[in-house]
Amino acid sequence: NQASVVANQLIPINTALTLAMMRSEVVTPVGIPAEDIPRLVSMQVNRAVPLGTTLMPDMVKGYA
């Protein structure tokens, strides 16, 4: 099963992502692949992401 990127904390809108904000977890539906975590660092979210939410490509500016 593919691990996805999950929010490790509440991430406010327009926040630049850091490693501490993300974790890898096997979830359904599948979100951004966990191997993309290094690429996500310093990218901004375009909405508030609650703790435990799977990051989807449309939630991260410049990812999709």
Rank of each mutant, 00 (worst) to 15 (best):
G52N: 10
L51E: 10
N1W: 08
G62A: 14
Q44E: 11
K61Y: 14
N46P: 03
N1Y: 04
L55R: 00
L17F: 03
D58I: 15
I37C: 02
A3S: 08
T28I: 09
R47M: 11
A48Q: 13
M59H: 08
R23I: 06
V6Q: 05
V6E: 02
A48T: 13
Q9T: 10
N14K: 04
A34L: 04
V5Y: 01
D36H: 07
V30Q: 12
L51Q: 14
E25C: 03
I37A: 12
L55N: 00
M43Y: 14
E25D: 15
A64G: 13
R39V: 06
E25G: 10
Q2R: 14
L17T: 00
I13L: 07
M22G: 01
D58A: 07
M56R: 08
L17A: 00
N8H: 06
L19V: 14
P12M: 11
A3D: 07
P33N: 06
Y63E: 05
P57L: 04
V49G: 01
P29D: 06
R47N: 13
R47G: 05
G52C: 02
A64R: 03
N14M: 09
V45Y: 00
G62I: 05
S42T: 12
K61I: 11
V49M: 12
P12W: 08
L40T: 02
R39D: 05
L51Y: 05
I13E: 15
E25L: 11
Y63G: 04
T15Y: 15
L55Y: 00
D36K: 05
L40S: 00
L51D: 05
R23C: 03
A64V: 12
L40M: 06
P38I: 15
R23T: 09
T18S: 11
T28C: 02
I13Y: 15
A64T: 14
T54Q: 04
L17D: 01
A3E: 08
V60Q: 01
T15S: 12
E35D: 14
I13D: 12
M56G: 06
Y63A: 04
V5W: 02
R39Q: 11
A64S: 13
A7G: 04
E35L: 12
M43W: 09
I32L: 07
P12G: 07
V49H: 02
L10W: 15
V30D: 06
A7E: 00
A16Y: 07
T53G: 15
G62D: 12
L51I: 13
M56D: 08
A34V: 10
Q2M: 12
A16I: 12
D58C: 03
N46S: 14
L19P: 13
L40I: 13
M21V: 05
Q44N: 15
Y63C: 03
G52E: 04
L40W: 02
T54M: 04
A3H: 12
D58K: 08
N8V: 08
E25P: 01
M22H: 00
P29T: 14
P57H: 11
M22Q: 01
V60A: 02
G62R: 08
A34W: 09
A3L: 13
G31T: 01
M59I: 07
G62E: 13
Q9E: 14
G52S: 12
T28S: 13
V45E: 01
N46T: 11
T18E: 08
V41E: 05
A64Y: 09
I32V: 08
L10E: 13
M21P: 01
K61H: 05
T28N: 14
A48F: 08
I11S: 00
P57S: 09
S4E: 00
V26G: 06
V41D: 04
D36N: 14
V27L: 06
A34C: 03
V6F: 02
M59C: 03
N46A: 13
P29Y: 05
P57M: 08
V30G: 10
L55S: 01
Q9G: 06
V30T: 12
L40F: 02
P50W: 10
A3K: 15
